[in-house]
Design a protein around this nucleic acid. Structure first.
Lengths: 332, 332
DNA sequence: CCTCTCGTTGCATACGTATGCTCACATCAT
DNA sequence: ATGATGTGAGCATACGTATGCAACGAGAGG
């Protein structure tokens, strides 16, 4: 049924291996022959079989992206640049979403991937261990795991959060709350640590009553903020674990009838596109996540093709972006 | 390096084909042997090679999803349910994003997919033609192309739009504008046709000056709405091609200082999650896009495994959901 | 004129699994 | 006791490409 390299070989009057070499532009094939082979291939509409190629070469040129919650806006914005970056290197992105930790690694391995980009690892995940044991190269994107070292692209939250904290304090905020991400993610942890450190640096500490933890999603941000706003001494400024949680915070404030920023100020983290929309205008900590995705792609390709001794840890700087949702503290 | 079925066979004291059959639970293998093989496979940590399997069986159990603009929120919400649906049938989703129309088909074919789900087809796309010529099964999701028939899941916009139009007219709106999607997409066309028909049914017609077309994204919705609001006789109600464009419309109104809904009413299409957020409260036309994604997955699997004679065209009903962004018309 | 080298092509085979066919053996009816 | 039936496993091979190695011819150098 399908056209194989043998069919092309027959038409071009050469052997099958010559077809294989000619189409991959092997220098050992004469220009003359290459042209003949290419013409024959085009005439027949020949398309090389990935399966045959994978079996023979042992490589698939496919890279897996492991994400648990695809619904999360953040990852939508990551996939496109990552896809494009890998494409320029001749690799293809394959999406994997699984929730259970144990079977994931097996499926990644079974799928004959050349490498895996881990985007939603939890700190205690065993997936990196399994991949390492199998010799399947992988790269951490955004989050890292504790058990195994590897190439990684991470965000350095300190600078951006320090600026945000300073600005918040300057605006008179003293009762400061936090709606943070899960403590079993490296991002959740590092942002919390950086926030506490930035406050401590100015002699302020987070009141434990005003801190909440939850998944990095809108519903969690909504619920946690609703709780905080209902408190006797509600915070006048709330730091959120990411923008998506901050959307939830804005919703909760609206539902509670607390105006933003006059009743409460909200600060996010990520600077996703909606943060700069006129109807949202979210103050947030920004970093170049598109560049970060591309860098993760580059690290992945380098890991596969060059197997460097050292692991690269690329950090991305953060900056504070002030928008409408931050204003002077008002005592209610 | 890697463990093959031959290694398992040696350990279990059987032949390689028996391993292949035992692990796929072939009834021709005795329970006793199966157990021995499974134990040996587990002991060695054997994972079947996708490449070998694909080459031998001619099937990959991989299905491609072709999307041009991944950034579009709509598709983020589609991918997860589609992924899950295919997974339950033992298939895996592979994301393909390409902009050029010509090379796409080749890459889809080359990748040894069992089938393709086309999510962002334009009406005049040749991809369906190429796929048909190759005998690669495919399904239309949401949009369809004109040239080739195939299984399809589509939205029937008429009912929802008729209700929305009736409600808008009841609220006194007469100057009605439209910020619509591209005319080379079946969704763009069918929504425009349904809107015009619904208005015509009530003896109203769209003023050509108040109609704009553009890509299904926030920026386009923003730009078009800004134009409409700047007109002498600006519309009091604007229908948008989808929710994402409606976000842009809301932004444009905010920027222009026109309050929503008191200055202008906005109606979207899709009912994505943000539409029901307290800070947005977008009136919109809803349908069950999660179910639609799952149905597309089911059609795809059925097409691959049963090759039915007839093509299925599954329609999804729409309903109008009234929220804050629609109110009585006010003359400015 | 012989040998050596270089450039080009073909030959043989490996990659790992699935499957049609054969075959051995046991069970059972005749 | 013999043939028929059925069960379970092995043998041989196919799938399509890539690659190490051999081979071939031409040209160059001695």
């Amino acid at each position: 049924m399908a056209i194989t390299s043998r069919d092309v070989a027959r038409l071009a009057g050469v052997s099958q291996p010559t077809v294989s070499r000619a189409l991959r532009d092997d220098p050992r094939v004469s220009e003359d022959t290459k042209k003949r082979v290419r013409d024959a291939a085009a005439l027949l509409g020949y398309v090389p079989s990935e399966a045959g190629r994978a079996l023979s070469s042992g490589r698939t040129r496919r890279i897996g992206l492991l994400v648990t919650d695809l619904d999360n806006q953040f990852y939508s914005h990551i996939i496109a640049p990552l896809h494009r970056e890998l494409e320029t290197h001749g690799y293809q992105l394959v999406l994997h979403t699984e929730t259970t930790d144990e079977s994931v690694a097996e499926r990644l391995i079974a799928n004959g991937l050349d490498g895996v980009i881990l985007a939603t690892t939890t700190v205690e995940s065993v997936v990196p261990l399994r991949l390492r044991d199998r010799g399947l190269p992988f790269v951490y994107f955004n989050r890292t795991a504790a058990l195994v070292d590897a190439d990684a692209t991470v965000v350095a939250p300190s600078v951006g959060l320090q600026d945000a904290v300073d600005r918040g304090l300057a605006l008179g905020h003293r009762r400061i709350g936090a709606v943070l991400g899960p403590q079993n993610t490296s991002t959740g942890r590092s942002r919390e640590r950086a926030l506490r450190a930035a406050l401590a640096d100015r002699g302020v500490s987070l009141d434990a009553d005003l801190v909440r933890h939850g998944p990095f999603d809108t519903d969690a941000g909504d619920a946690a903020t609703a709780e905080l706003l209902a408190l006797e001494g509600a915070p006048t400024l709330i730091f959120c674990g990411n923008d998506v949680m901050a959307y939830g915070a804005l919703n909760a404030a609206r539902r509670a009838g607390v105006p933003v920023p006059d009743g409460v100020s909200i600060i996010g983290f990520d600077d996703l596109p909606p943060a700069s929309w006129p109807i949202i205008e979210l103050s947030t900590i920004a970093y170049d996540y598109v560049q970060m995705a591309r860098e993760a792609g580059r690290l992945m390709v380098r890991r596969i093709e060059e197997r460097p001794q050292e692991y690269a840890h690329v950090e991305f700087a953060t900056t504070f972006i002030e928008r409408r949702t931050l204003a002077a503290a008002v005592t209610r």
